[in-house]
Computed example of a mutant assay.
Amino acid sequence: MFFDTDIGGVVHNLAYLRMIETCRTKLAGKMGMDLKSMAETKVFPVVVRTEIDYKRPATLGDALLIRGRLDEMQRARFWCAFEIRRESDDALLITCRQALALVQMPEGRPMRMPKEWQE
C-alpha cells in the first residue's frame, strides 16, 4: 500500500512488522488461539523479543508473500519464524523470529506451553 512506503516508494520497516503481526495472528488461529478463544480464556501470546533481518527492500506495487511457522518450543516461551518474499521473483526480503510467552490476564501471569504444541 502507498502508506507503507516512503517518498522513494520503499517499504517502511514498521510495515513489515505489521505484516508479520497479521501472519502471526493467522498462525495463532491455526494453533487453536483464535481471537475469540483468546478473549474467552484470557490467555494471550505476548511478543517478548523480535529479531529481524532486512535482506532486500520491497517497493511500491510489489506483491508480497508472508509465511510463518512455529519454530521452537521452550518451557515458558516459543519462537515463531517468518519470511517475506516478493512474489514476482521469489526474492527473500525479510527473515524474522519472534519469541512469545503465553500470559494469563488480567493477572499477567506467564503460563507453560500446552502439551499438544509439543507434538
Rank of each mutant, 00 (worst) to 15 (best):
L60E: 06
D71K: 07
G61S: 08
K36Q: 13
E116T: 14
A63C: 13
N13A: 04
A58C: 04
T59N: 10
Q98G: 08
P57F: 01
T50W: 05
V103L: 02
C23Y: 06
M1V: 11
G29T: 01
V103H: 00
T5E: 02
M111Y: 10
W117A: 03
L64S: 05
L14S: 15
R109C: 11
W79Q: 12
Y54E: 02
C96F: 04
E116G: 10
C96M: 08
A15E: 01
T22D: 15
A99G: 09
A63H: 14
T25A: 15
T22G: 13
R112G: 10
V46N: 07
M31L: 15
M31V: 05
R85Q: 03
E51Q: 11
R112S: 14
G8E: 09
T25N: 11
A99E: 03
G8M: 10
E119K: 13
W79R: 10
D4S: 10
L60G: 04
S37E: 15
V43H: 00
G29E: 13
A76Y: 14
T41K: 14
G68P: 04
R97I: 12
V43K: 02
R49Y: 07
A15H: 01
F2A: 11
A91S: 12
I7G: 08
A99D: 06
P114F: 04
Y54D: 02
E21V: 00
L27H: 04
D34A: 07
R67T: 15
R109I: 05
M38L: 08
K26I: 14
A101L: 09
A99L: 06
A91K: 08
M33Y: 15
D4G: 05
A28L: 15
V48D: 03
T59W: 11
E21Y: 01
R77N: 12
L92H: 00
F2E: 08
D89S: 09
L27R: 00
K115N: 06
T50E: 04
E87F: 06
E107D: 14
H12V: 08
M1Q: 09
G32F: 03
